[in-house]
């Protein structure tokens, strides 16, 4: 792919840094989403509702 390029290690290291960093970001966002959904479900199971939801509003 790179023939006899002497800098192959630098190239693969660059792509490794990119994939690991973006992969960690994606995993963090996915895990965070599951965490928030679980917490919301636990609160709803306890009968807790938001004020805005009770009054028919839709704010966050």
């Amino acid at each position: 792919m790179f023939g006899s390029d002497p800098h192959t290690g630098f190239i693969f290291a660059s792509y490794a840094v990119t994939v690991v960093t973006l992969g960690a970001l994606i995993v963090w966002i996915v895990v965070d989403h599951r965490t928030q959904k679980t917490r919301l479900a636990a609160l709803e199971a306890r009968g807790v509702t938001r004020r805005s939801a009770r009054s028919g509003g839709v704010s966050s």
Partner: peptide
Amino acid sequence: MRNEILRRRVRAMQMVA
């Protein structure tokens, strides 16, 4: 952004609880 909105809902509901 979706996570942050859910986080704020969790916070609001925890305060109500």
